[in-house]
């Protein structure tokens, strides 16, 4: 298990190194000089040159790459071209919204999907299964921003239980902030849970047809005992894959939901940075997202090994 983890860790580091090179290269070939963009079209050439020197744009490419990577490693992401504030600070502010939102949404999605999927699988072909499958079909078909608007309409405008958007800040109190994240989390979670429930159901149904489930029944386990003791852990492997993918998506893919609820999250930050050609911010945020995707994959790999002994012994 330790060897397996170390190997996965090594592959994580290599992936990160490759990703950082690719991101740097792509941003480099993007047209437009940030310095002249910042100073406007009427800027004097020597002013532009001075700014380029200040931003470090006059260094050679390898030098800039090394400076960027070593900076990131020490927590220095550089200074935003447009806002003139440290990028690390900007990302940290947004992260405090996006990360809790993603975890919140993923927790909700899992809490809805597991029981729904297990329930549907255990009543295959019966009314309960058909109802759950119908609901998930709807969950996948309807876009999440429509859910979001409906939630706002019902719970914020009509019932006035929640505010329609905005974020008070964690310093105003944990529960207040969680409350502000609730509607966005639900709208993010619903479509995800619909997908997850279907995966859970089909994975369980595959497992229920396996020979070892018959062995379990022949031992004297009831249908329910066999499902919980032998079925669930085996069915979890494909489900973990989807959960990993969903987390990465939720972290950065919530831009529309962030817009609907006026949340200053990572999605909006990257959108603004791209429009303003704030390359250093784009670079850093993309790198951070890549890091989170790779980290989540690493955690999913560890979870696989925890679930399946066959992976542990395969070195």
């Amino acid at each position: 298990m330790l060897r397996y983890s170390l190997k996965r860790l090594l592959s994580l580091v290599i992936s990160l190194a490759v990703a950082s090179l690719v991101i740097f290269a792509v941003i480099e070939v993007a047209p437009g000089d940030p310095a002249s963009f910042m100073l406007g079209i009427n800027a004097q050439p020597d002013t532009v040159a001075a700014l380029r020197a200040e931003l470090g744009l006059d260094m050679s490419k390898p030098q800039r790459y090394v400076a960027w990577v070593t900076g990131m490693l020490s927590g220095d992401f550089g200074t935003s071209y447009t806002y003139r504030t440290p990028v690390a600070q900007m990302i940290a502010d947004r992260m405090w919204i996006s990360l809790p939102l993603a975890i919140y949404a993923l927790t909700l999605s899992t809490l809805i999907a597991f029981p729904a999927g297990i329930y549907a699988a255990s009543r295959r072909g019966k009314g309960g299964d058909v109802a759950v499958m119908g609901a998930t079909q709807l969950g996948i078909a309807v876009p999440n921003f429509w859910f979001a608007m409906m939630l706002v309409l019902i719970f914020a405008i009509n019932l006035r239980w929640f505010s329609a958007g905005g974020f008070p800040g964690w310093d105003k109190g944990f529960w207040l902030s969680m409350k502000a994240l609730t509607l966005p989390a639900i709208s993010l979670a619903l479509p995800q849970s619909a997908i997850l429930a279907r995966v859970m159901r089909s994975s369980l149904l595959d497992i229920l047809g396996e020979d070892f489930m018959r062995t379990a029944r022949a031992k004297g386990l009831t249908r329910r005992q066999a499902l919980w003791r032998h079925g669930l852990r085996n069915a979890l492997i494909p489900v973990l894959t989807i959960i990993g993918l969903q987390f990465s998506f939720l972290l950065a893919g919530g831009i529309i939901i962030e817009q609907v609820f006026f949340l200053p999250g990572l999605g909006r930050l990257i959108f603004q940075a791209i429009s303003a050609r704030d390359l250093i911010v784009v670079e850093s945020v993309v790198m951070l997202l890549v890091f989170s995707v790779i980290l989540v994959n690493f955690l999913v790999d560890l979870a696989y090994a925890a679930v399946d002994p066959r992976l542990r012994s395969r070195t």
Partner: peptide, 23 residues
């Protein structure tokens, strides 16, 4: 359920798949 495994045991054809791989 109290009889199966207790009074009647059963052995199947496919030993490769008759056991739970994660236990």
């Amino acid at each position: 359920c109290t009889l199966r495994g207790n009074e009647v045991g059963m052995v199947f054809q496919e030993p490769m798949t008759a056991l739970n791989p994660v236990k």
